[in-house]
Design a protein around this nucleic acid. Structure first.
Ligand SMILES: [Mn+2]
Ligand SMILES: [Mn+2]
Ligand SMILES: [Zn+2]
Ligand SMILES: [Zn+2]
Lengths: 143, 143
DNA sequence: ATTTTAAATGCAAATCATTCGCATAAGCTT
DNA sequence: AAGCTTATGCGAATGATTTGCATTTAAAAT
């Protein structure tokens, strides 16, 4: 039941309106479910969380809304191994993920140095990076 | 039609036999298709390449064989964005991939420094990395 | 406040990649 | 060559996501 500053919800809403995105009851429910999630929920998980706000939300709408939000840059879609896609609000600075193979926990981290090296590598190959994906899969060090 | 030293095929076969893996006509066809591929083919692509050697191969067998080969460490399965899984022989040293968003081309690269930094990050978080995935998606620098 | 109109929704059916069940075929060991 | 065990082809089942369509609804226009 962790959740961050609800003010963000209003900001999200007005930003979306400004972009010409229609705000519906179910979109608000989904957005609010996202804003209230500290983890990286799947579409199904978001469905049940959104239904607490608005029981009428359907899975198809969750997927369609997520597509809209991803395209508007409001949400990030992660495709970790094993499960279906996992989503998160794109309101934090860029980071990558470490997935705990035993618990499924997703830990966020970021390394300026790795980001830099990626750029250098792409540069050497004559490419501009549009986006990237870095995932570490591991287990807690047994002492 | 690029392909590497065919001697590798024999090595692959004997290694697999040594592990107790049964060698069938279709498995050889698939193995040979893999050994003869310089790119990162999908299961469907491997199916048609394997069928040049043995027309009887079925898609189910391609998948089943790939599972066996992945589990034996002979083959690597990559899940890039967009398409289905893409496979490659695990006979090269570890490397990561840069995917050309315009052409779909997959370019291999490796960075000792990035690998090292990943270890350090995991270490700090109290984890041992079991494996990881690093993919850069980009387009050729427009001059 | 009411009408209008394009866009969003719910539902079920359709996709797509991958896996499975089962009857038959084929490796490997003896 | 025979027997036991595993692999194969086929088609059906799966799981996640998308889509068609009739209906509702947000938001623009009266
Ligand atoms: Mn995250
Ligand atoms: Mn590769
Ligand atoms: Zn990153
Ligand atoms: Zn690597």
């Amino acid at each position: 039941m962790t959740h961050r500053d609800p003010k963000i919800l209003n900001e999200l809403e007005s930003d979306l309106r400004a972009e010409g995105v229609r705000i519906t009851r179910q979109r608000m429910a989904i957005l609010s479910a996202l804003a209230g999630s500290a983890d990286h929920p799947t579409a199904e998980e978001l469905l049940s969380r959104a239904r607490e706000k608005d029981p009428s939300v359907s899975l198809a709408t969750v997927y369609r809304t997520l597509s809209v939000l991803v395209e508007s840059g409001t949400v990030l879609r992660n495709e970790f191994e094993g499960t279906g896609a996992r989503f998160e609000l794109a309101d934090k600075p860029h980071h990558d993920h470490l997935i705990d193979l035993d618990t499924g926990d997703v830990i966020e981290f970021s390394s300026k140095r790795i980001e830099k090296l990626q750029e250098e590598i792409a540069e050497e190959l004559g490419y501009d990076i549009v986006y990237h994906r870095l995932e570490l899969y591991g287990r807690t060090k047994k002492t």
